[in-house]
Design a protein around this nucleic acid. Structure first.
Lengths: 244, 244
DNA sequence: ATTCCCTATATTGCATGCAATAATGTCGAA
DNA sequence: TTCGACATTATTGCATGCAATATAGGGAAT
């Protein structure tokens, strides 16, 4: 793993050691951000197991940073709802129950509802075209059975629709809340039947957006989320097994 | 100001000094939280001017904490959108433009829209009664011309309606986003005419909630926010001067 | 007087050390 | 063997020191 510690050793570290490259001098003022992004990726992608503890040593050694920026990163991740800090015991990845996930879906649905109407009012043709391009690539991913690519583009499309509302606060909150449950949503997408249907729904969503039919778009997104959650829940509860 | 530093001096402080009370020993693991809450209050209430810099010394001396928990607090407040940290220059209170505030209103409206329908489905009679009690006290505040009390109860009522949705994520996001613009909303409430009308709207809102008419409640809240924002904007843009 | 540059000072970013707490291991009694 | 008290070790919370950067002040040239 790429280490940031390969630099002149400012503090009290041995002055004779660490002669290797110093790619990180410019990171002053950005270390915490770097750590946050790194850990966030690990949590959102599922590399760090839900409920699992994240010891400071594990990260400091893995990323080559010291404890101060790491501890600041933990606080940020806690504010984002990705991590829980238990006093004297450190940080652990938040584990979401099905009802927590359902709650998050409700929030996202509400945010997309406002976004839908605003996007149809304020979105530009260029923005719509960018979404359509992603949509086409997403369909291609489905045809190629590239679940990972599909999932990624899917997320991106929803974010871009929200971004069309030209409301930075909305985009920010949507992004954060979306990240909280991303790892759990992946499961739902693996169900073949749902996958096909989801793409069909996306077609309609894209059409409604392009035709600037806000009320319709809102309803389509709402239904899309309800359908998605229904499948996701069953997968999470073990009723449906994700195909190998 | 109450200082937390009046304790045994663990680190390297002079061991002969600081004999006074030690009320904060139990704060281990909670210092950052304490600082966050303190600074958040100062920002939300307007004690710290928007756009103003918050130097570390100013807070460490004021609250009697050291720089480590303070810097962690800044990171949390940045994640909450209350503060901006400029590398090598420290933290400053976020200044929101009218369009930022409008954006926040849109987010809050969206969140309350979901909340409205859910609250009418899931809210308990006890919760409704608690809201009604606040509402009555709020009306009393209006009659007594107690703007501060009115404002506080108003905020509380909206949060409680959202809480009726029994969705922790929704409550959390609403609380955070609401705090971001609280200081700016106060201005809007000072306009006498709006004040009267807002209370009337609250009557209707309460009725819709008690009768569990979700769609109606949603629309009433939406209109309520639009009306509120219209006045707030004019005050912020200086078209209306706040009396007193 | 104004502008620029240089120096002195203050402030921030980060690394680290010490104390408090939790986790772990050991041994003896039941 | 199992359980629990105690000692040992590891880990976290926080305070502080050092280096990098920004800020302020002063003097010289214009």
């Amino acid at each position: 793993m790429q280490s940031l510690n390969d630099l002149p050793a400012p503090g009290g570290a041995h002055p004779d050691l660490d002669p290797p490259p110093e790619p990180a001098r410019a990171l002053r003022g950005r270390r915490t951000l770097y750590v946050v992004e790194r850990i966030r990726d690990m949590i959102v992608s599922g590399d760090l197991p839900a409920g699992g503890r994240i010891s400071e040593r594990m990260i400091t050694e893995g990323l080559g940073v010291t404890r101060t920026p790491l501890r600041e990163a933990f606080k940020i991740l806690e504010a984002e709802g990705l991590v829980r800090i238990v006093p004297n015991r450190g940080a652990e990845v938040i584990h979401l129950s099905p009802s927590d996930i359902e709650a998050a879906f409700e929030v996202l649905t509400g945010l997309e509802s406002v976004a839908a109407e605003l996007a149809c009012t304020r979105g530009t043709a260029a923005e719509f075209a960018a979404i359509e391009a992603r949509h086409d690539r997403m369909v291609a991913c489905q045809r190629a059975d590239d679940l990972m690519g599909y999932f990624h583009l899917n997320q991106e499309i929803h974010q871009l629709i929200v971004d069309c509302a030209h409301n930075p606060a909305l985009s920010r909150v949507y992004r954060t809340e979306s990240a909280r449950i991303r790892r759990y949503r992946f499961a739902g997408n693996r169900v073949g039947e749902r996958w096909v249907r989801a793409v069909m729904e996306h077609e309609q969503i894209l059409d409604a957006l392009k035709q600037r039919q806000g009320a319709l778009l809102r309803e389509l997104l709402r239904t899309h989320h309800i359908n998605g959650w229904r499948v996701t829940r069953r997968v999470l509860e073990g009723e449906l097994s994700p195909p190998g």
